[in-house]
C-alpha cells in the first residue's frame, strides 16, 4: 500500500525518518528557548510601556525598535546574514545545530509581540487591583499578568509554533536538514512528487497535533 502510493519515500525511508526527527528537534529546542526569551521580552514590553506598572520609556523604546528591526528582515535573508554569528555560537552553520540560532532569532521577535499582545488583552482592572492590594511589580507579573493570561499565552504560543514549522522548512533550504530539506532534495530536485506529498502530510499532522493540544490547554485554564 505504502509502496504503491509513496515508492520514493519508502526507498529513502531512513532519510525521511531522520528528516522528521530533525524537524521535531528544531521545533522543540527553538520553541522552548524562544518561549522563555519571548515571555521575558513580552513582559518587559508590557510593564515598561506608557502607563505600565514599571514604566520606562528608554527600555521600552529599545526593545520595541529592536523587534521591529528584526521583524522587517525576511527570514531567508536573516539566515544568511547571521551565518558568521551562527558559526561563532554553534560552531557550524549547517545541520540542525546550525539552524537553532537563526530560528531563535527569526521567531523570537514575532513571539515576543504575540506574548505582548496576549498580556495587553488582560483587563487593566485586574492589574490595578494587584497594585491596590500592595503587591510588588514581580508579584503582579506572576500572580496577575502571567497567571491570568495562561489561556491567551497558550493561544499565541500555538500560533507561533505553527509559524515556526514554516521557518524550519525554510532553514532546510540552506542545508539545515529536516522535512523542508527532504522535500527540496527529493521532491523538488529529483522531481519525486510523492516525497513532497509525504512532507505535506507529516507537516499537517504536526500542525494539527499542536493546534489540538493548544486548544485543549486553553480550554482547561479558562473558568
Amino acid at each position: 500500500m505504502l509502496e504503491q502510493f509513496f515508492p520514493n519515500v519508502v526507498a529513502s525511508s531512513d532519510a525521511f525518518g531522520t528528516a522528521i526527527i530533525q524537524t521535531l528537534e528544531m521545533l522543540v529546542i527553538t520553541g522552548i528557548v524562544s518561549f522563555v526569551i519571548s515571555l521575558a521580552i513580552g513582559v518587559l514590553l508590557v510593564v515598561t510601556q506608557r502607563g505600565g506598572i514599571a514604566e520606562n520609556v528608554v527600555v521600552w523604546q529599545l526593545f520595541d525598535k529592536l523587534i521591529n528591526f528584526f521583524r522587517s528582515i525576511p527570514f531567508i535573508i536573516l539566515i544568511a546574514a547571521l551565518i558568521p554569528l551562527t558559526r561563532i555560537i554553534a560552531g557550524t552553520a549547517i545541520g540542525v545545530k546550525g539552524t537553532i540560532f537563526p530560528l531563535i532569532v527569526g521567531i523570537t521577535p514575532f513571539f515576543s509581540r504575540q506574548i505582548e499582545s496576549a498580556l495587553n488583552e488582560l483587563d487593566p482592572g485586574l492589574v490595578e487591583s494587584g497594585q491596590v492590594m500592595g503587591l510588588s511589580v514581580w508579584q503582579i507579573i506572576h500572580a496577575v499578568y502571567l497567571k491570568e493570561s495562561i489561556a491567551s499565552i497558550t493561544r499565541v504560543t500555538t500560533i507561533t509554533l505553527i509559524s515556526l514549522v514554516g521557518l524550519t522548512a525554510i532553514v532546510g533550504v540552506v542545508g539545515g536538514g529536516g522535512i523542508g530539506d527532504f522535500a527540496i532534495q527529493y521532491g523538488y530536485q529529483q522531481n519525486q512528487q510523492d516525497a513532497t506529498i509525504a512532507c505535506v502530510l507529516v507537516l499537517l499532522v504536526i500542525v494539527s497535533i499542536m493546534q489540538i493540544i493548544g486548544t485543549l490547554i486553553s480550554k482547561q485554564t479558562q473558568h
Binding site: L126, E128, S129, Q131, M133, G134, L135, K147, I150, Q222
Partner: peptide, 23 residues
C-alpha cells in the same frame, strides 16, 4: 515603593467591575 505597598495593604479598595481574578 516599600512604604507605599505597606500603606496600600492598610487601604482596601473595591471597584464597579469587581476586578476579581477569573482564574
Amino acid at each position: 515603593h516599600q512604604k507605599l505597598r505597606d500603606l496600600r495593604r492598610k487601604i482596601g479598595m473595591i471597584f464597579q467591575q469587581f476586578n476579581l481574578m477569573p482564574s
